[in-house]
């Protein structure tokens, strides 16, 4: 790759990403469960806005044609023989990133709610070394899809707990639009909650001595499939995630080992 831009200043713009001017090895991980209708647009968008990145779709035991559609669109596809849930699928991606020495692993959901044109926003703090985990947040500028009122209350409660545990304010704790550097990849590949991992992983990263950074993004309502969290499961979700956070505070956290 020629004309490498200075990433130390954090000057990663949408333009520089689109022209492929990054020296870092970037892996875009797209966890997908029955997303045949939305996955091709997601892959195309990522290709347009971040052509130098490798795209890895984790097909989490889909029953539809997610695998075929993703392969036809030129993405790497890892098909899990059974459905592990979002956390187990994402961890597969992190383990892949860890094994092949990627500098950054980015999570982009397969349902189309995350916008590839904003990849540079969450990549910037990580590539510039300002943060180990950058989280795309809907609630900083409060534009775009804001989720339902009840869900926002739930997220607010979790945000309060997480902020108290980490002594650092994080608003959109459930956001799956995030970028992880080598150190965060190293943490996640060995320890990542199997279901509903987003909230828990923020505390995990913090307890491992790594830095998080929340950046403003806009999201869209999902374009295909159904959310893994429906209305009936919301209460269960809240209880489970809150419990997981308290269990996390009891768990021992291993020091980070960074691969050379």
């Amino acid at each position: 790759m020629n004309a490498v831009i200075s990433e130390k200043d954090g000057a990663v713009t949408g333009e520089s990403l689109r022209s492929g001017n990054t020296s870092s090895k970037i892996l875009i991980i797209i966890p997908a469960y029955n997303e045949e209708h939305s996955i091709s647009r997601v892959i195309d968008d990522v290709k347009t806005h971040c052509p130098s990145a490798h795209i890895l779709v984790i097909n989490d035991g889909s029953k539809d044609r997610t695998k075929e559609v993703a392969e036809a669109n030129g993405a790497y596809v890892i098909t899990l023989p059974t459905n592990l849930g979002i956390g187990g699928a994402m961890q597969t991606g992190y383990r892949y990133a860890y094994r092949y020495g990627y500098d950054v692993a980015v999570q982009v959901d397969g349902d189309g709610q995350h916008k590839a044109e904003q990849l540079h926003l969450i990549l910037s703090p990580v590539l510039s070394g300002k943060a180990d985990l950058a989280i795309g947040s809907r609630f900083i500028e409060q534009t775009g899809f804001q989720s339902s009122a009840t869900r926002r209350i739930g997220i607010k409660i979790l945000s309060t707990i997480v902020s108290a545990m980490t002594r650092k304010k994080v608003l959109d704790v459930t956001s799956g639009f995030r970028a992880a550097n080598k150190r965060a990849i190293s943490v996640f590949q060995s320890d990542y909650a199997t279901d509903y991992p987003e909230v828990d992983s923020i505390v995990l990263v913090n307890r491992s001595g790594l830095r998080t950074s929340e950046v403003a993004v806009t999201m869209e309502a999902r374009t295909g499939g159904t959310s893994s969290i429906n209305a009936m499961r919301s209460v269960y979700y809240m209880i489970k995630v809150t419990l997981a956070l308290f269990i996390r505070s009891l768990k021992q956290t291993k020091p980070v080992e960074v691969q050379s």
């Binding site: 790497y76 098909t79 383990r95 892949y96």
Partner: peptide, 17 residues
């Protein structure tokens, strides 16, 4: 089982590539 499933998925992909 989770570890094995993940490893199996990755290995299958590597073989395919």
């Amino acid at each position: 089982v989770i570890r094995l499933t993940q490893e199996l998925g990755i290995l299958h992909h590597e073989l395919h590539e």
